[in-house]
Design a binder for these strands. Sequence first.
DNA 1: CACAATCATGTAATTATTTACATGTTTTTA
DNA 2: TAAAAACATGTAAATAATTACATGATTGTG
Lengths: 180, 180
Amino acid sequence: MAQRNTLKYIILGLINERPVTGYELTKAFDSDIGEFWLAQHSQIYPLLKRMEHDQLITHQLEVTGEKLERKRYAITPDGQQELADWLNEPVTKLNANKDEFILKLYFIRDRQDGRLLPMLTTQLQLHQQKRNHLQDQMAQKFPDAAHIEAYGHFLILQHAISREQDYCQWLTNTISNLTA
Amino acid sequence: MAQRNTLKYIILGLINERPVTGYELTKAFDSDIGEFWLAQHSQIYPLLKRMEHDQLITHQLEVTGEKLERKRYAITPDGQQELADWLNEPVTKLNANKDEFILKLYFIRDRQDGRLLPMLTTQLQLHQQKRNHLQDQMAQKFPDAAHIEAYGHFLILQHAISREQDYCQWLTNTISNLTA
DNA sequence: CACAATCATGTAATTATTTACATGTTTTTA
DNA sequence: TAAAAACATGTAAATAATTACATGATTGTG
């Protein structure tokens, strides 16, 4: 999916919260934000370079120990403007939820097909794991429901949990219909 | 997202059901399968050519009227084998659900932010529309719950509806929390 | 202290995907 | 019957994304 520039805006958003390194940005996709977008370091580093060239961000070198260098990127006013423009632009079309399991399922026409049950149970395990992990994240990051700092972050985590819960429920129902 | 070959397998699966043209394959992504993967004709036609070269499919020319030619592709035994291999290979990792709206939401830290409510209501409308459309599809394609031909197709449509329902519910709850 | 894991940053090659360019036919509708 | 919509198939150029190649430093652990 060559989605127009989305990664650039995610990076702007993350850098806007606080100055970060390419390594930290890469890590961000292991966490909650990774539920809704993915990127590898090999995509991130060249993009940071381009964004700095376009004067959306700047960096400052940091050194740990003798030699280990790190570039900590900060957002510029131009970068903040572009981030704001993106945020203000309404989202009028929905992305496809790419899901390889669902596609395989589509091609299984026979309710009696022996592949169905193992596929569904494997998938249920995966989504239960994911749901549990997200619930742990919620407990860890938002222990006090009365004091939520990053409201958007809270909302998307809540949404991810709800989505996984729904996915698990559908799988569970399907399995029980099948085994009935 | 350069997802390994998924489109190839989707095409094999669709051609396996019945011989189809590139145009029909393109159209398939406007319908239910498009909830879980997307492709344009500019990706499909060259891929069909490559797949025929790899002897996974063959085509037969059809003519309508005087000149309008159409290539109707059929699957070969090699193609069927590759499709079966793909179907039997367990899906062990989940795709990210790319969602640009959710990403924007992530960066809105303040519960009082004026952009929040319009974003949420716009998004609710989109997902309600999608849910309604999918429900219409369900009624049209599977009018008789007792006689379901393509069980996998039925399941993924059910899942898509459930997903949209959950999305709408979450948005509705969020909006009502916000306006309370 | 040796080894493993993690930190840290890049580039190259390949593949996937989108957007734009390009052309012509047939069917439907006003 | 003229125009619009849908049918039908392709290629080219650009962008996005993955996988592999490449290197080295620091920290934690046994």
